[in-house]
Computed example of a mutant assay.
Amino acid sequence: MAPSAKKHATNQACLIPGGFTVLSLQFTTDSAAQHKVYVKEHKVRAEKSSHRPQDRTLFVLNVPPYCSEDVVRSLFSRFGAVQSAELRDHPGSFQQSGPQLSRYFQPAEKQGFKVAYIVFEKSSSVTAAKSHPHDVALLVSTEQRPVRTGIQKWIHRYTESTLHLDKLQQSIDSFMEGYDKRKEEEATRQKEEAEQQQEDEEGWVKVTRGSKGAKARPHSEAANQRALQKEQRKKKRKELMNFYTWQHRNTQKEHIAELRKKFEEDKQRIALLRAQRKFRPY
C-alpha cells in the first residue's frame, strides 16, 4: 500500500512558502538530472501596465541560462497560448523603453539565471501551470525544437556576432530615419506650444476665452522651460547684487582698518613728542 500512496502524492503540484509552485525542467529525455523553476501568478499593485495583466501573467524564478525567450515560450505553451515571454536579470516593473534598437547596438547579454514573465492569452493557463505536477518534467530540447549547447552554441554565437556591412548600413539608415522623424515631431510640438503660450517681457501670458466646454490647457514643457529660465535670471541678478554688497562691505572694512592704522601712528607720534619735550623755566 505504501508505493501507491507515494505515487498518489507525486501526482500533485508541489507548493513552497511564498506562494510558489515547483516545476521540473529536463533538458532531454536522456538526461538524468532535472532543474527546478518556481512559478506563481504575477500580482503587483504598484504596476498597472497592460503589458503584464495581473490575471494572465505568470512569474518564473530560476530560469537556466540555456533557456532563451523562444524556449521559454515553447515550454509554457503546453498550458495555453502564450502572448509574450520576457526574460530579465532581476525582477522589476515593466519599463517602456524608447525606440527598439537593433541587435548591433544592444549591449552584450549577461549569462546566468534569470526571471521570466509569461503572459498568456487566457487566465486559465496560469492556473494550469500552477497546478502542474512537479514530477512531470518539461522537456527543454526536443527534435522539433533543438537547443544548442557546448561547442555548437559557441559556434552559433560567433557566427551571429559577425557583422554584415549591408545589413549594418541598412539598420543604421533605418535608425537615423526614425531619429530624424522624432526630432522633427518634437520640434513641431514645442513650436506649437510656444505659439499658444507666449509671454510678454514682464512674464504675463495672454489668456483668451475658448469654446464652450473646452478643457483648461495644462502647463506645457515650453512654458515650464521659460519659467525655469526666468528663475535662473532672477537668481543671477540676486547673486550679482550680493556680490556688489560684499564688495562695498569689504571696501568699508579696508577703510576702517586704514583709519585705525593712522590713529595708532598718530598716538605713537604724540607720545614721542611728549617724551622729547623738556621743562626750561629760565
Rank of each mutant, 00 (worst) to 15 (best):
A2H: 09
S4E: 12
C14H: 09
L15E: 09
I16C: 08
P17G: 00
P17M: 00
G18Q: 10
T21W: 01
V22E: 06
K36N: 13
K36S: 13
K36P: 08
E41N: 14
V44P: 11
R45K: 12
K48L: 10
S50V: 13
S50P: 12
H51C: 11
R52E: 07
R56V: 03
T57N: 07
T57E: 05
T57G: 09
L58P: 04
N62A: 11
P64W: 04
P65R: 10
C67V: 13
S68W: 00
E69W: 01
E69T: 13
S77P: 11
S77G: 15
R78H: 10
F79E: 06
Q83D: 15
S84N: 12
A85P: 07
E86F: 01
P91T: 09
S93F: 06
G98S: 14
G98L: 07
P99Q: 14
P99C: 06
F105I: 00
Q111D: 15
F113I: 00
V115M: 01
F120I: 05
K122W: 00
K122Y: 02
S125L: 02
T127R: 10
P133I: 02
H134S: 15
H134V: 06
L138K: 00
L139R: 03
Q144L: 07
Q144P: 02
V147H: 14
R148V: 04
T149M: 04
I155G: 06
L163F: 06
Q169G: 02
Q169Y: 00
Q169N: 05
Q170H: 08
S171V: 01
S171W: 00
D173F: 08
E177F: 02
E177S: 06
G178C: 05
K183W: 05
E192A: 09
E192D: 06
Q196P: 05
Q198N: 07
E199P: 02
T208E: 15
K212N: 02
H219Y: 03
H219G: 05
S220L: 02
A222I: 10
K230F: 00
Q232E: 14
K236I: 06
W246Q: 14
W246T: 12
K253S: 11
E254Y: 04
H255M: 07
H255E: 09
L259I: 04
K262H: 13
E265A: 12
D266T: 06
K267G: 03
R269P: 08
L272V: 00
L272G: 02
A275C: 01
Q276W: 01
K278I: 03
R280F: 08
R280H: 11
P281F: 00
